[in-house]
């Protein structure tokens, strides 16, 4: 992750090399005092459980060990056994006792899910931001207000609504197809089992993606693009109009202007948004858990939904913790690659 260049202290300073270190120390103390409240809270409430989770990942922690309490020494007999990296091995070579579990497929699906979502979120988000930002648009305010709705509705509610819309008998999609058939005399099937059909709609190398994947993708696109539109709008509004005027004088067509003015100018705002979007989508629990529940046959499961099931259905805390660490490591690598790619393209655009 890229950390923006540090800001120099604002305190006026005398240039004495000897006191340099002491001054730096004093600034540090002041700075850490500002961070202390947040830092303290997060150390206790977030960091401690996370460290505990890392420890659990190397044990066989399960439902029996829930009576173990680190603060009560007498409960030591409920402590889990340390099993080393066994949990990780079982995760990676797919020898967990879960139905339809295959780590390679899970990871592939998780990556495809993230990439597909981000492509749509970003391109739709920017496209709609451009449309909303165009000169003399009628009804701009109304559109802007309406377009935050998918973002504003609590995600859990949106997911359950979509789940019902995909219902094979009474869902909105099959009904809509029925209406289209009646109106236009077409004959689309109206009994599609959107979330349950195991037959992949696209064969070949995409045959590992069931119909439910496309349903989930549509739902998550619906949920995700408004965020990108808001970020892109902010960036678009900060582009000085002189740049476009200069491009006009040079005889640039709209296509050239988009790639040579708009894209490089909104890039700095979009890159962090894309990185954040990658993390959110990679770990997007609610859409998958509440719509397809990982089905059919576990083929739309992602890493975090699998980990959640390990905890709440099987109480295998140790394995689930190991899962969390695996997710973190993968995300870390993706972020590094992301950073590399964006830096490489930076040089091209400059």
């Amino acid at each position: 992750m890229d950390i923006p260049a540090s800001v120099k202290p604002v305190i006026p300073q005398q240039q004495k090399p000897l006191s340099e270190f002491r001054r730096q120390l004093r600034t540090s103390v002041t700075a850490w005092l500002y961070i202390a409240p947040a830092g303290l809270l997060m150390t206790i409430i977030t960091l401690f459980p996370q460290l505990y989770q890392i420890w659990m990942a190397f044990t066989d922690y399960n439902i029996r060990n829930l009576r173990f309490n680190i603060f009560i020494p007498e409960s030591a007999r409920f402590a889990p056994n340390v099993v080393g990296i066994e949990n990780f091995i079982r995760i990676l070579n797919s020898s967990l006792a879960i139905e339809n579990y295959n780590f390679g497929r899970l990871l592939l699906f998780n990556v495809v899910w993230t990439v597909a979502n981000l492509i749509f979120h970003v391109s739709l988000g920017v496209l709609i931001a451009l449309a909303l930002n165009s000169k003399d648009l009628i009804g701009r305010k109304i559109y802007r207000a309406l377009f935050v709705l998918p973002w504003a509705i609590p995600g859990y509610i949106a997911a359950l609504t979509w789940r019902n819309m995909y219902d094979d008998r009474f869902g909105a999609f099959n009904q809509l197809l029925g209406v289209i058939n009646q109106t236009f005399g077409t004959s689309f099937p109206t009994t599609t089992r959107w979330l349950l059909d195991a037959q992949p709609p696209i064969g070949g190398i995409l045959s590992f993606l069931p119909l439910a994947f496309y349903c989930l993708l549509i739902t998550n696109i619906w949920l995700g693009w408004p965020f990108m539109t808001v970020v892109a709008t902010g960036a678009l509004q900060s582009i000085p109009s002189e740049l476009y005027e200069a491009a006009d004088i040079d005889g640039a067509n709209p296509w050239d202007k988009f790639w040579n003015v708009t894209v490089p100018m909104i890039r700095p705002a979009m890159v962090p948004a894309i990185m954040l979007g990658t993390i959110w989508t990679f770990n997007n629990f609610s859409v998958i858990y509440f719509i397809s529940q990982g089905g059919p046959f576990g083929r739309t499961e992602i890493l975090v939904t699998q980990a959640f099931k390990l905890v709440y259905e099987q109480r295998l805390y140790g394995v689930a913790s190991a899962f969390s660490i695996v997710v973190f490591l993968i995300l870390f690598v993706i972020t590094l690659i992301n950073n590399r790619i964006t830096r490489a393209t930076e040089a091209y655009n400059a």
């Binding site: 992750m1 950390i3 540090s6 800001v7 120099k8 202290p9 604002v10 730096q24 120390l25 600034t27 540090s28 002041t30 700075a31 850490w32 500002y34 961070i35 830092g39 997060m42 409430i45 977030t46 960091l47 401690f48 459980p49 996370q50 505990y52 989770q53 659990m56 829930l66 680190i70 993390i279 770990n283 890493l303 975090v304 980990a307 959640f308 905890v311 805390y317 689930a320 913790s321 899962f323 969390s324 660490i325 997710v327 973190f328 995300l331 870390f332 972020t335």
Partner: peptide, 29 residues
């Protein structure tokens, strides 16, 4: 606003916490 000892590490810690799923942390919490 400050340039201080541990600044980079502190910023990085927040991002790491954003990336770590909290699935199994409910029990210790």
């Amino acid at each position: 606003r400050f340039k201080f000892i541990g600044r980079q590490a502190g910023m990085l810690a927040f991002i790491v916490l954003l990336m770590l799923p909290s699935t199994a942390t409910l029990a210790p919490l």
